[in-house]
Design a protein around this nucleic acid. Structure first.
Lengths: 180, 180
DNA sequence: TGTCTCATGTAAGGGGTTACATGATTCC
DNA sequence: GGAATCATGTAACCCCTTACATGAGACA
């Protein structure tokens, strides 16, 4: 998918500047882009050219002017259309599995170390995700249903990490038995 | 990470031609590249230029000549070094979560439909994964340990899909309760 | 006759990343 | 004095994808 629908969604929730969008992308997990300027500012330009969004320039003293973008009627119907029809499979990229595939060339200790390192890494990510979840709890939602959906998004990410953690612990335990 | 380490790994397991590698990538899930020519043939060229692999041209009558690549000593130590030191976080890209984030604008029926569609899709992917796992069972492995590791890779992918499935079913059930 | 498999490559373009560039204000 | 925040944008580059190109034999 394109980042453009994510931007359209964010702006439908709250009109923002490119700079604000950047920050949202930076600390969101499910909006999986890095939030680099190139992508955001170019997408905003393109969406505006396509009539999906419009902007209002806000002059501020003390800090630079900014463009606050909001979604047009056309943009809203395009967004809804995408939400209903889009059917994009999730992508799971786990370089660790590739490491593991050729890890038979490692010693017992090296392999155990590899697994431990991965376990620690996933633990860290799970903790981070929990912190993000706690922070998001204070966000104002528009409805009880939306609150539920946003909760479920966080739950999804946490259970993904949790499942990965459960798996790596099982691998470690079983391997310990195999290598006496 | 680069596809080059994946290629190095595959060649360390069994010397192959670009064409053979392409097929392996095409029906592997954990080797998450599409297996397009451009990437494979360019990587082979690069790896050879870097002294990681070497090739032997096999002339065949009836079908075109092919280059069978194998890993050099330098390539083997580079591969091992990467396996031990690489620390790349897994990437989870789920466009569905972005759809869900703005799905509060949908009717009860539209939202239910969205969830059902996703559930079916994940079910399909889980079945496919199980089939691949069954096919791989017949592959010749070099050791009991390698057999174990390769099994665990399949288990990882299946439990990822399974966890996603469990989650979407829970969302559907809870949502049904919220909307009476 | 047309499509499939074997086999190696190239071209064009999209998506994504880091780093560069500018400039005022605020905070340590 | 130096870094961080606010704010918008550009340049260079890498990774990855689809599609194109060639050419022989097999099979329906």
């Amino acid at each position: 998918m394109t980042i453009q629908y994510a931007i359209l969604g964010l702006l439908s929730w709250r009109p923002s500047s490119g700079y604000e969008l950047k920050k949202v992308f930076e600390d969101s997990t499910y909006l999986y882009w890095s939030g680099n300027n190139n992508q955001i500012y170019k997408s905003l330009l393109q969406l505006q050219k396509d009539g999906m969004i419009q902007y209002e320039t806000i002059h501020q003293d003390g800090s630079p002017s900014k463009k606050i973008y909001s979604v047009t009627a056309k943009g809203m119907s395009e967004l809804k259309e995408w939400i209903i029809t889009a059917k994009e499979a999730p992508e799971f990229k786990k370089p660790f599995l590739i490491q593991l595939a050729w890890a038979d060339m490692l010693s017992k200790e090296e392999l155990a170390g590899l697994l431990t390192k991965y376990e620690k890494e996933i633990e860290g990510q799970l903790i981070q995700q929990k912190e993000k979840y706690d922070r998001e709890k204070d966000w104002p939602n528009r409805s009880q249903r939306e609150t539920f959906l946003w909760n479920m998004i966080s739950v999804n990410l946490m259970s993904t990490y949790q499942s990965e953690l459960t798996w790596v612990r099982k691998v470690r335990a079983q391997l310990a038995r195999i290598e006496e």
